Simulated scan of single mutants.
Amino acid sequence: MDQAIKSKILTLLDQHRTMRIATLRPDGWPQVTTVGYTNDGLTIYFLCGPDSQKAKNLARDDRVSLAIDDDTSQVMEITGLSMAARAQMVVDPMEVEKAMRSLMSRYPEQKSIPLPMPTPADVRIFRLTPIVVSMLDYSKGFGHTDLVCC
């Protein structure tokens, strides 16, 4: 992967905290939801309820598609990324703890809200490994994308 493109991907991942993620329902239709995430390089982590539709969908099919971007007032300033990835449930306790700490550090304002933090037993944590990344940058031309295989 070209280092300049990788740097742009990492910058976008580090600048944001939410993504839209599509999983596949049992009937084959994609289901898109918004989730908070954290990343360690190109590896992305998110959590969801153990009985959530996302968790059930991922138990059947580990393929996901995701999008991360900004809402901008100027169409030619649109930047973002979309990604095809494989999702794996994280079961290693050390990796679970690391992902939980990292995710909570992305939301420092949460500390002032008296809500209980979920424990690893309360949630499912998934690791997303990218397969293909599409970098969107309209400043280079309407609909310009750089496609990168991982």
Rank of each mutant, 00 (worst) to 15 (best):
T11P: 06
C48T: 02
C48K: 05
R101A: 14
A67M: 14
L103W: 08
A85Q: 01
P26I: 07
S134E: 10
L10Q: 13
Q88Y: 13
L115P: 01
Q31D: 15
I44E: 01
D71W: 11
D146P: 06
R101E: 15
A84V: 00
H16Q: 14
V96H: 05
V75G: 08
C150I: 02
L103H: 13
C150Q: 08
I125M: 10
C48P: 04
F46Y: 10
T11A: 11
D146F: 14
M19L: 12
A85S: 01
I78G: 07
L66N: 00
H144I: 09
L115C: 03
K8F: 13
S112K: 05
I68D: 04
T34G: 14
V90G: 01
V91P: 05
A67I: 13
D40W: 08
T129C: 05
A59T: 04
L81Y: 12
A59H: 00
F46L: 11
I131C: 08
H144W: 10
Q53T: 08
D14G: 13
T43G: 01
H144T: 15
T79Q: 14
E95L: 12
T43V: 12
A85Y: 04
K54P: 07
V133R: 02
M100W: 05
T18L: 14
I68E: 01
M1D: 05
M94A: 15
R86G: 00
I44R: 00
V64P: 09
M100T: 09
D62M: 06
V123W: 01
T145H: 10
D69Q: 09
Q88W: 09
Q31L: 13
M117R: 06
S82M: 11
Q31I: 15
